[in-house]
Design a protein around this nucleic acid. Structure first.
Lengths: 146, 146
DNA sequence: ATACAGTCTACAGCGACTATAGAGGCAAGC
DNA sequence: GCTTGCCTCTATAGTCGCTGTAGACTGTAT
């Protein structure tokens, strides 16, 4: 039975080694046992926890939100509503983000459709971006970069 | 006729003062004239350019893409296809991002629907996040934070 | 014995800003 | 002239969620 090193944990949970160490440094993962030579040694519970973190990250939860979820998990007698509300906030964030992106999609499509080749001089894409009177989202909220 | 200081430019273009200085530092905005006491002095053309940058950012264009667009704008005899292709890339990014978010929305809704209150112990939201066998997006691509 | 992969720490960098500190400038009212 | 109060200046550090690098040590297979 070989000890579960950080590399094996990485394979098991599908999270990069460097990311695991990062999660430890910010307190998302606890401080593991060490072997005689100082290497981290994990157990099955760490695979569980790290997989939970990965999935939550894939769902877009912030690391702070995940910390809250983990804390709640250790208090199983508590009311479920706190968990529910974290998920609700996440859902509304996702929906807000989607409606922004839909507006962007419409505007980008319009720009591209109107562009019939030719010179930059009369390019409708540039004209559309310059037309800052009409904003895609009708708000001044910044769309996060991607 | 008062000189256009950075604050007035900020108001006119709806971009924060600190962000304007940042744009200058990374070469997105040029280096403006200075008054005798060293304050930045702008003209109407700067309002145009900064508004263009703001709108392009709202459309999700990266700062590198915006640099390209500005460069192309100063060469109006060039072919429009470069501009078009920047917009096309942007559109496909937006669409990719949207389909990821749609998957997240479905999963979050499912999680929340199944949560009927009660204790954390039996919370379906937690169970759903723990169910990392079935991934929302069916890929291991990370959704960018927001 | 040697090769090579894995692990360690510490620190720098990414994008696109935002925040802070501490100094100096400018216009209006007294 | 003096004060008040906002504006602007530079420089630096922090944000988020990692990723990459350097240089040293460890563990395993041949």
């Amino acid at each position: 039975m070989k000890p579960m090193t950080i590399g094996r944990l990485s394979n098991a949970a599908k999270v990069k080694v460097t990311t695991i160490r990062y999660y430890e440094s910010v307190g998302l993962m606890g401080t593991p046992e060490r072997s005689a030579s100082g290497q981290r040694v994990y157990g099955n519970i760490d695979v569980e926890r790290l997989s939970f973190i990965r999935h939550a990250r894939e769902l877009g939860f912030s690391m702070d939100a995940i910390k809250d979820l983990i804390r709640l998990q250790t208090e199983p007698d508590q009311d479920c509503s706190a968990v529910d509300s974290i998920a609700q906030i996440q859902l509304s964030e996702v929906q807000k983000r989607m409606s922004q992106l839909e507006a962007l999609e419409r505007e980008l499509k319009r720009m591209i459709k109107n562009c019939q080749g030719g010179k930059v001089d009369g390019c409708q894409v540039m004209a559309a971006i310059n037309d800052h009177s009409e904003c895609a989202t009708h708000s001044h909220e910044r769309v996060k970069p991607f």
